[in-house]
Write a protein that binds this DNA or RNA. Structure first.
Length: 339
DNA sequence: GTGCATCAAGAATCTTAGCA
DNA sequence: TGCTAAGATTCTTGATGCAC
């Protein structure tokens, strides 16, 4: 790859003149300009992003901190972020915290060293108390760059935020199950330290109460948003020989764990037991498995987070922005049973 | 209209001093 | 003389102020 120095040599000018042509500022003789532009085009010269950052004292790299790189949900969010970043000349550094607060602080420290221009973060933990929020706040303050929080909103947050209609998703999922004729409806909760899990559960509780149904406590399973826990909890529930009419699964991974246990034990979803998940599991559609869920446009959430970050870069003093991704009910048959 | 000099951060390389 | 540690210098690339 050519450097500005080599372009200058080929054009018979100094690199200052090439720089003026590149940035379209200062005086440059029209003939000299045309000659330089021709060389740039012929050699497909592109200025080094690292050197431009160094020179301008501003980076073109965005740090994205996510808690589960192997979760398809975050894969799609990243896709949306990448799309907008790419269109606007930003590159991305990804950090996976594996839902670990210490790893999150390390990742932010690494991004500080990289001198990123902004950070998009899905917090690793619930941050339900002021002390842990302060730790995160301090780490982000050290970076001194715009921040956007995605998906996991939490109390005391002060940053631009993009999240999902968590309460509504819990409510709609439960309501759809009730409309399908189910009465004894359980739920596999998410990690209740997270606000999103508490909100989804609250939606479930309110939908049950609004329809005059009691919550069957033995079918309120204390999950943590992982496949493994959902699988174990579902297996134990099946082994107890008593099943509810249907279950709400609180995220895509919980749905996978639930379905895996059901298949293993020979129980047919949509016939022996109903299920409505929060978040889609695209792979089930590919496999022809009818799965009803409350979905959201995750790629759009990624796009919006990057757009919000760029807006914050341009206008650092405007009020905090919050964008709520709408939820959409997709009924494919698993909300019913033949019992 | 043009080019020199300078600046930025940090790694790599070179130089120097001190000691055994 | 050889080794180590510390400090100084060089190098990378692009932007820009200022002199000619």
């Amino acid at each position: 790859m050519l450097t500005i120095h080599e372009v200058a040599e080929l054009a018979g000018v100094s690199k200052s003149t090439v720089s003026r042509v590149l940035n379209n500022n200062g005086y440059v003789n029209e003939e000299t300009r045309r000659r330089i532009e021709k060389i740039i085009q012929e050699h497909q010269y592109k200025p080094s992003a690292a050197a431009v950052s160094l020179s301008k004292q501003i980076g073109s790299t965005i740090g994205v901190v996510i808690p589960e790189i192997d979760n398809t949900f975050f894969g799609e969010v990243l896709k949306g972020i990448n799309e907008v970043a790419d269109q606007n000349g930003f590159s991305i550094i990804y950090c996976d915290t594996q839902n670990n607060g210490d790893k999150e602080l390390k990742a932010l420290s690494a991004l500080e060293q990289q001198r990123v221009r902004g950070v998009i973060i899905t917090p690793a933990m619930g941050y339900g108390d002021k002390e842990s929020v302060d730790k995160l706040k301090n780490a982000l303050a050290k970076l001194d760059v715009p921040v956007v929080v995605v998906d996991r909103d939490f109390d005391y947050s002060q940053w631009d935020t993009i999240y999902f209609q968590n309460y509504e998703s819990g409510y709609i999922a439960t309501e759809s199950m009730i409309q399908a004729g189910n009465k004894k409806i359980g739920i596999i909760q998410g990690d209740m330290q997270l606000k999103i899990a508490r909100e989804r559960f609250r939606g479930y509780q309110d939908a049950m109460a609004a329809n005059g149904l009691e919550i069957p406590e033995q079918f309120v399973l204390k999950g943590d948003f992982t496949i493994e826990t959902a699988y174990e909890l579902t297996k134990r529930m099946i082994e107890s020989k008593v099943l509810p009419d249907g279950m709400i699964t609180c995220n895509n991974r919980t749905s996978i764990g639930f379905i895996k246990a059901m298949i293993e034990k020979g129980i047919t979803i949509g016939s022996d037991i109903a299920v409505v998940g929060i978040d889609n599991v695209p792979m089930l559609d590919v496999l022809g498995f009818p799965f009803s869920c409350v979905s959201r446009d995750t790629i759009e959430m990624g796009r919006m987070s990057m757009k919000l970050l760029m807006e914050r870069m341009n206008k650092p003093d405007v009020q905090r922005s919050i964008w709520v991704a709408p939820c959409k009910l997709e009924l494919n048959g698993s909300e019913k049973t033949n019992r």
